[in-house]
Design a protein around this nucleic acid. Structure first.
Lengths: 345, 345
DNA sequence: AAAATAAACGAAACCGGTTTCGGTATTTTA
DNA sequence: TAAAATACCGAAACCGGTTTCGTTTATTTT
């Protein structure tokens, strides 16, 4: 214990000389090597505890040739901070990583450099052992780059090259089939859809789920109700105006995410629609705030915490056994009925 | 350029032998030492570029005795993910740090270990050069610990010991004076207040701002309208029920944050109050989602991005010049009128 | 009791950089 | 032109650990 301000400056050499051993021996004693006598090991760990010795991370990592650090590069999201996904996700993966002795390094994409540049820097400077990739695109340059380098990573979301890399995803296709089916059962026929950017693979799958269910149910007789979106509230507003000026207009609208749904609801209200009486709205994401709306937003939801834990587990497995065949996992979202949908009038 | 999968494995020694120099010379050439001829320096940088040499971070940091990393330990927030503050804040500070060559290390508090333990581990294992502390309490054990260790950090929010450490804060007292004053000018007399947990210093200051303005305006004739809260929607609901069952009941309610405001609005609606006609509500945080409510939530807001940038600047200054006197900065929030308040009826 | 084996630790190389110090070769000064 | 100063680079120590290899001592084996 040091009385002074500075944190303990005990190095392994200090420990060694204190014990009358060499630092190599101390290191092996502390790391459970078998060629250390029980008595010595006990003595070493005891003195280490008393002196408050903690190995310097940088030195250990240099010697062992690993970083025990996982990188997360935040995708540049121009003003779409409606979603708490990122913070919850960071929380869950850092928790999971910490448990296994790994650290989480968070980087941002500052305007000057491209996104792939960030990955490149992190790889070459050996700051991380692997990556977690968020918001995958169908053609994803980050994935392309890391595959080319042979650098470990797991994506949250699928890509066009999903057969070549580990991934975790929510089954958005099934989720939107379910949601559409739910609306159909309530009696809706003209069900609108507001998508996300089509560059996102997930957006395509959600659209697919919706479209397939509509085609199967109404045998291609009801169409023209798909609108592009951009996963923001503003995008939802414009899409809703386009849909609601049609005649006959939709009695329900399915949205690619909750932010979009909020925009749709806002625009619909301004046009005089009452929800859910005159228009049912369903979102996707399960943001907590949806429960405080009036009416509370019905949405498709999944556990961010579980997703993060799963992804971390996959990545750590990959790091441990690089030769493993591709790992992937498809989890499912559940429809959380809260009140923004009902039978059509 | 390597054709194979592996990332470039060029070490400084490879560069040196390729150039016919020693690694010491190469290092100095690359780091701008004055005892290297212009010609040699040019040759070194050129070959380094061609071979794609990037110094291994771990080695550099070990040799230089620094980590170039800042730690952020996420405070354990039991189910309060209504706020996007954390993700936006992380985004802004990592951007600011990256620009200066620093990394951001994010840790979580896994149940087993206490929060201070996390800081202790990070300090002793020398993983970070400094910390950014979020959600300060009046008596903050994290601050106590780091002050004791003499370890650099900047807080977002003040503490009881703010005279002893660097801090950045939003002037919540003034903000709530302003908001109260705004409601007074609209004609409100019975203005309610729902606080945050009183262990947070910020919550106390917000309450103080509200209370002082009320006392000054109504000369202590109007009181009993303060309710405790917990910064969550649920807390807002119960507080609102307590306030609204009074007779006469408040015509406006000021909330310690937006999540609370959402809860207040929900409860008020359920009790039959129309907003803002029968009850004005004002929040604090400026969450983007508030703009999509009906009516849009009037709130006190400030730039998270600017806060993050400022805090990073303060911390880096501190690291560069440890002897500097305490640095602090008080920024102000602005009242964003959106529609959830109006004159009383 | 001598030889073989096992147990326990010391010595030294290594990870990949940075930095100090000292020694030539070259230029400047006297 | 000899001496002093300067420019430029090599050699080696160092950061704080880990790991391999070899040596000594203690224990078995024959």
């Amino acid at each position: 214990m040091d009385e002074r301000g500075k944190p303990s400056e005990v190095r392994i050499s200090d420990l060694a000389s204190e014990l009358g051993l060499t630092k190599g021996t101390v290191s092996r004693a502390l790391n459970g090597y078998e060629d250390i006598s029980k008595k010595t090991r006990k003595r070493v760990t005891e003195v280490a505890r008393i002196l408050g010795y903690v190995p310097t991370t940088q030195a250990r990592r240099l010697a062992m040739g690993l970083t025990e650090t996982i990188g997360l590069v935040l995708p540049p999201v121009p003003s779409q901070p409606v979603n708490t996904f990122v913070s919850e996700f960071i929380d869950s993966i850092s928790t999971a990583l910490n448990i296994h002795g790994y650290d989480l390094l968070v980087h941002s994409v500052n305007s000057e450099k491209s996104e792939v540049d960030q990955y490149q820097r992190l790889v070459h400077s050996r700051k991380v052992d692997g990556f977690i990739i968020l918001r995958t695109l169908e053609a994803d340059t980050r994935v392309d780059y890391l595959l080319k380098e042979g650098f470990p990573f797991v994506t949250h979301g699928r890509t066009a090259r999903m057969a070549e890399h580990d991934w975790f995803d929510i089954d958005g296709e099934k989720a939107f089939r379910d949601a559409t089916s739910h609306l159909v059962k309530l009696g809706h026929q003209r069900i609108g859809f507001v998508g996300g950017g089509n560059e996102f693979f997930s957006a395509q799958l959600r659209l697919k789920g919706y479209r397939n269910m509509m085609e199967e149910t109404y045998d291609n007789k009801i169409s023209g109700l798909e609108q592009p979106g951009d996963l923001t509230g503003l995008g939802g507003e414009t899409a809703a105006r386009n849909l609601l000026k049609q005649n006959p207009c939709p009695t329900a609208i399915l949205c690619a995410n909750d932010a979009t749904a909020l925009g749709v609801i806002k625009a619909a209200r301004e046009l005089g629609f009452r929800i859910p009486q005159q228009l049912s709205v369903i979102g996707y994401d399960g943001i907590a705030l949806g429960g405080y709306l009036d009416p509370p937003l019905t949405t498709l939801t999944f556990s961010i915490e579980a997703s993060g834990r799963e992804i971390v587990a996959m990545l750590l497995r990959r790091l441990k056994e690089p030769g493993l065949p591709i790992i992937s996992k498809l989890a499912s979202a559940t429809l959380k009925l809260r009140g923004s949908e009902g039978p059509p009038t």
